[in-house]
Simulated assay, not measured.
Amino acid sequence: MKKIRKNYSLEFKIQAVSLSEQRGNISSVAQELGICKESLVNWRKHHKEGKLTKEKQISFDPVREELLRLRKELEETKLERDILKKAVGIFCSLFLFCF
């Protein structure tokens, strides 16, 4: 079973960081917002380093996009191949059963 990863918007992250800086208590802010404490700590770290900005989110890397597209296509192709292998096995067993 795959673990579902939550994605938070950039605005939510920035507001959570500013709220935690105002209050000073990371644990209570994280619990109040319903997020993991470690996530908030990482967001604060990225914010201090200047990595939690809109420019970082908007940047477009065509090589990375192509890689993600190809990986998705490969996954779909493998799934189709596995389905066809199973179908061939089923039809072969039915054919042999008939004779």
Rank of each mutant, 00 (worst) to 15 (best):
K2H: 10
K72Q: 15
Q57C: 08
E32R: 07
L84W: 05
L67Q: 12
L96H: 12
E66I: 09
L74C: 12
P62D: 10
G50T: 00
S59R: 13
T77I: 13
N25R: 04
A87N: 14
D61Q: 11
K3P: 08
F91M: 15
Q15D: 14
N42D: 10
S18W: 13
K86F: 07
K72Y: 12
S27C: 09
K13A: 11
R71C: 08
Q22C: 06
T53S: 02
L10Y: 06
N7Y: 11
C92F: 12
A30K: 00
I58W: 06
K3S: 11
K45L: 05
V29I: 11
T77P: 03
E66Y: 06
E21N: 13
K54P: 07
T77S: 14
R71Q: 12
E11K: 03
R23D: 13
I90G: 03
K2V: 13
S59G: 04
I4G: 07
L40A: 02
K51C: 08
F12T: 00
H46D: 10
R64Y: 09
V41Y: 05
E11G: 01
H46I: 00
H47C: 04
G34P: 04
I14G: 04
L40V: 00
E32G: 04
S20P: 01
L79C: 14
E76W: 03
E21S: 05
D61V: 04
Q15S: 09
R44H: 03
G50N: 01
L67C: 10
E49Q: 07
N42K: 03
K78C: 11
G24T: 01
F60K: 12
F60R: 14
K51D: 09
K45Q: 07
G24D: 01
C98I: 11
E75Q: 15
H47G: 01
